[in-house]
Amino acid sequence: MTVSGVALLSICTLLGVFLGDLLGIALGVKANVGGVGIAMMFLIAARLWLVRRGLLSHGLKTGVEFWGSFYIPIVVAMAAQQNVVAAAKGGPIVVIAGIGAVAVCFAMVALIGRLSGRVETMDEIEAREALEATVPHFKSGRIG
């Protein structure tokens, strides 16, 4: 049933938000601490458990995945209701933080790549796989 997926998702989200609030109180802040992240971990655990028991039905999957596919439209709606007029006054901060973050991350991709040594490029992998694919063809005669 589709509703079981929606219910599972609701239970995980509610539990996560609840624990996030509890964690916030325990840490002495008026905030939800990592509620969404905790809920995500519940959902991943629930999925693993269901798969192992063979209980992951098509309907259940549909119920969860529908909402998963909905998150970009929801983010669009979220963007459309922000106080952008006030934010526009802080304009350059967006450009500087955005460009800075990307530049630093690009540099780190290069750095990690250099530090971890050479690996096969995509072209080399495809060349090798193409070669491997042709070899057994010569060895084994086609049966049937």
Binding site: A39, L43, R47, E65, W67
Partner: peptide
Amino acid sequence: RDFAIVATAF
């Protein structure tokens, strides 16, 4: 929003 974002973990 929270609901949809949690769902992506699936």
